[in-house]
Design a protein around this nucleic acid. Structure first.
Length: 820
RNA sequence: GCCCGGGUGGCGGAGUGGUAGACGCGGCCGACUUAAAAUCGGCUUCCCCGAAAGGGGAGCGCGAGUUCGAGUCUCGCCCCGGGCACCA
């Protein structure tokens, strides 16, 4: 018999699909029904190397969803591109002595080849690369729109600097005080940098999470990252000076318990206020010491340190004079950089009070009961009341908060406010391989946007692009020196480039209209396809990419360019494939590419295996011993179909299949159809759907005596169900059975009547322990089932001589007899 | 410290409160073969009784609880992975 030859089968069908443009999905024409438009998208790859098994899993999953939905009659757009700019590619280029542009183009060609070999149904007419001028033209255009809207700005600020990558980083790219890319400790530097005003969108980014169907943990991570806290801004006044020092607090109810006041060492008044006191030198030294410590050191040291400034501040609620300290447990970046310290009700303040030898005053107490004064009492529910709090004494905590804020507000001493953990997005980078920021600096005019008709500002080719602490673009004098677009005088181009995350914050919109040379996209096209119906990617992007993309969508919505406010309606985060206990990466040398395995077993087998390893959302350790099993499965299906065709000829019996044949096999086909449809469509349970198809195939294998028509029906069903996973062999076998264009064949529908069996096997338990099984006709009355159960010899042995006190019958499942 | 996941055979993993271990990997035994590969058949959680058929017991990280019945629900722990972390 002809053996299963995946290479030949796969080449043949890929050629057919390409010739017939099966993967291409045109944009709707005006008047088209748009209700069946579906957009399935996987996160685009960085072309810094080849694809590995993690990519294969990701894109196969998207492909299964795509093929599955197409067979349900949806018109699915399934595009692909490359996130081509960025440090990833640039660092590889530096290491290998190649130019990033050349390297990137080569990697893209290699990846495209790998993708085509996998047979993923990608619409190649929509392919894009973020590093090509016809794409980043529009990245720049969007930047300019955000600039006009006041959502992009340049400001001097304390920023995180990576000494190895020689560039600033966004907050989101700093993990535990280290560069997320290279792991080196970041340094604080004050630099003039470009920011996006993502904080303007903090509330909407938070509130709109209620409208997306995303994994709960991703929603939680975003919620925590935005970190909205409701509280109050309260004005303290420096004693003996006309200086106001606002603080942010979430606990206005504890205001009477403030026994000292603390400023961050970076606070602009910290040194100034100590000036002239006997503490001046000590404060200056402490501030200098703190500045010299790295983020990592500072975050690691939990013991409280600080110095008294010699000054005092006045608490607005009781005019009490409390000491003003400087301590590094107060962060300049959050709130106002200064706090009121309430040691009785805050753990950090309590530790500080102990370290500094300061007073602790309890102002919140449980309604009934005492508090252990050796630890801070932080409970904050309606069971606590204010004590030692003047006119507010006796109020429940929440009511007290509101009353104190109202009291402050009336006197202009405070107001209710909200604080966020989220900071503005620092988008400029001092590196070569990124999208140029399209502005010109002019001594006379300041920052001047490059006019739209002069876009794109192309990235110049420079030979020395190694990082050196300022953008390598600064060395390209011919490129840098331009005339000011506003006044015509001498100007200098901005030499920083954009963070790669800017490029990937809108690519999913460009796919809708990828060749548009007049605009980033046509609004009608984008509104027809978006939001993305199913987005699939790694959980490592839970904060960065997904937050930035949401921000871009909302900003573009506000500016009238798109008609939706969330980019990704449904999100599935797939687990990572690890190898040797770590995430696959070129630098760790633990990358498994699909190529050798595809050469040995074919793409269909590899596609099956990446989704068979375990639940798709869980991490998995790569183990290539299991691949052969998937190949054996396909080879068995191959043999069964070819045998069937050889013995009984081609032919695919119509649904619901032949009557009067082998009812068990027919039932199995319908059972598998039902299971696969629900597992893929509702649960993303790609592993168990596959198991169900295998059970069906095994049953065909085990039923050689079944009538030929039922076997053909069962085999056709298996072929049809495996198609989203293994489209090449499915199309081949389908055509050998006499079918055509499987990719357009309607998805099979399980007939509920055929899921029911003639006889039902009941498990019989005595006192919850399994003692036997009885088979009865389906639909047998409970009394008869019970009678049959009591007749079972082994059951009888366990109930004889005892009293049955309770009988439980679970229809179609089991009987439990409770005896005493 | 706080917030999420997860803990089931030798391994990956199935298991709407109802027969735990589907499906696969690996292993063992056998058939076919000069042989191997491929394929096909059987066995494969552990312990005990039995020649066998079969029967009994234990078992899903640990300990309680709810229930006729718990891998699944509740409470308290332990371990692994991830996220956040001096955010006032």
């Amino acid at each position: 018999m002809e053996r299963y030859d995946p290479a030949a089968v796969e080449a043949r069908w890929q050629e057919v699909w390409q010739r017939e443009r099966v993967f291409e999905t045109a944009n709707p024409s005006p008047g088209d029904d748009t209700s069946r438009l579906v957009y399935v998208l996987e996160m685009l790859p960085y072309p810094s190397g080849e694809l590995h098994m993690g990519h294969v899993k990701n894109y196969t999953m998207g492909d299964v969803v795509t093929l599955f939905r197409r067979r349900h009659g949806d018109r699915v757009m399934h595009p692909m591109g490359y996130d081509a700019f960025g440090l990833n590619a640039e660092n590889v280029a530096i290491k290998t002595g190649r130019h990033p542009a050349d390297l990137t183009r080569e990697n893209i060609a290699a990846i495209r080849g790998q993708m085509q070999r996998m047979g993923w149904s990608i619409d190649w007419t929509r392919e894009l690369s973020t590093a090509e001028p016809d794409y980043y033209h529009w990245t720049q255009w969007i930047f300019l729109r955000l600039l006009e809207a006041g959502l992009a700005y340049r400001q001097s600020a304390s920023v995180k600097w990576c000494p190895v990558d020689q560039t600033v980083l966004a907050n989101e790219q700093v993990i535990d005080g280290r560069c997320e890319r290279c792991g080196s400790e970041v340094e604080a530097r004050t630099l003039e940098q470009w920011f996006f005003k993502i904080t303007d969108y903090a509330d909407r980014l938070l509130d709109d999470l209620a409208h997306v169907r995303w994994p709960e943990r991703v929603v939680t991570m975003q919620r925590n990252w935005i970190g909205r806290s409701n509280g109050a801004r309260v004005m303290f006044r420096v004693d003996g000076d006309d200086i106001e020092l606002p603080v942010f607090t979430t606990r206005p109810d504890t205001l009477f318990g403030a026994t000292f006041f603390v400023m961050a060492p970076e606070h602009h008044l910290a040194t100034a206020l100590a000036r002239g006191t006997e503490h001046e030198a000590a404060v200056a030294e402490y501030v200098a010491q703190t500045a010299a410590r790295s983020e990592v050191e500072r975050a690691g040291a939990r013991e409280k340190t600080g110095v008294f400034t010699g000054r005092h501040v006045i608490n607005p609620v009781n005019d009490e004079r409390i000491p003003l300290w400087v301590a590094d447990y107060v962060l300049m970046e959050y709130g106002t950089g200064a706090i009121m310290a309430v040691p009785a009700h805050d753990e950090r303040d309590f530790e500080a009070a102990q370290a500094f030898g300061l007073q602790v005053r309890q102002v919140i107490a449980p309604r009934n009961g005492e508090v252990d004064e050796s630890a801070p009492f932080v409970a904050h529910t309606d069971d606590e009341v204010l004590v030692n709090s003047g006119q507010f004494t006796g109020m429940p905590a929440h009511e007290g908060s509101a009353a104190i804020v109202a009291w402050l507000d009336e006197r202009g001493l405070g107001e209710a406010t909200v604080a966020y953990r989220l900071r503005d997005w620092l988008l400029s980078r001092q590196r070569y391989w990124g999208c140029p920021i399209p502005v010109v600096h002019c001594d006379g005019c300041g920052i001047v946007p490059v006019p739209d008709d002069q876009l794109p500002v192309e990235l110049p080719h420079v030979d020395d692009y190694a990082p050196k602490g300022r953008s390598p673009l600064a060395a390209a004098e011919d490129w840098v020196n331009v005339s000011c677009p506003a006044c015509g005088g001498p100007g200098r181009r901005e030499t920083d480039t954009m963070d790669t995350f800017v490029d990937s914050s809108w690519y999913y919109m460009r796919y809708a209209d990828p060749r548009n040379a007049r605009a980033p996209f046509d609004r009608a096209a984008v509104d027809a396809w978006l939001p993305v119906d199913q987005y699939i990617g790694g959980v490592e992007h839970a904060i960065l990419h997904l937050m930035y993309a949401r921000f871009f969508t909302k900003a573009l919505y506000d500016l009238g360019y798109v008609g939706f406010t969330e980019p990704f309606a449904n999100l599935f985060t797939q687990g990572m494939i690890h190898f040797k206990g770590a995430k696959m990466s070129k630098s760790k040398g633990n990358v498994i590419t699909p190529d050798p395995m595809v050469a040995q077993y074919g793409a269909d087998t590899v596609r099956l295996y990446t989704l068979f390893m375990g639940p798709a959302d869980q991490d998995a350790e790569w183990f290539d011993g299991g691949v052969a099993g998937r190949y054996r499965f396909l080879a068995r299906l191959w043999r069964l179909v070819l045998d069937s065709v050889a013995e009984s000829g081609p032919g695919i019996p119509p649904h619901p299949g032949p009557a009067g044949g082998d009812p068990a096999l027919l039932r199995k086909a319908h059972w598998a159809t039902d299971k696969v449809t629900r597992d893929i469509g509702e649960r993303f349970a790609f592993n168990t759907a596959q198991s169900a198809i295998q059970e069906l195939v095994n049953q065909v294998h085990d039923s050689p005596q079944a009538d030929p028509d039922t076997r053909r029906f069962a085999l056709a069903t298996a072929v049809s169900l495996i198609h989203p996973y293994a489209p090449h062999i499915a199309c081949e076998l389908w055509s050998r059975m006499g079918g055509e264009r499987l990719w357009e064949a309607p998805w099979p529908v399980a007939d509920p009547d055929l899921l029911i069996t003639d006889t039902t096997t009941y498990a019989v338990q005595v006192n919850g322990r399994l003692r036997g099984e009885v088979a009865v006709d389906s639909g047998t009355a409970q009394e008869s089932v019970l009678a049959a159960a009591r007749e079972h010899p082994n059951v009888r042995a366990h109930i004889d001589g005892k009293q049955v006190v309770k009988e439980i019958v679970v229809p179609d499942r089991l009987v439990n007899l409770v005896v005493r």
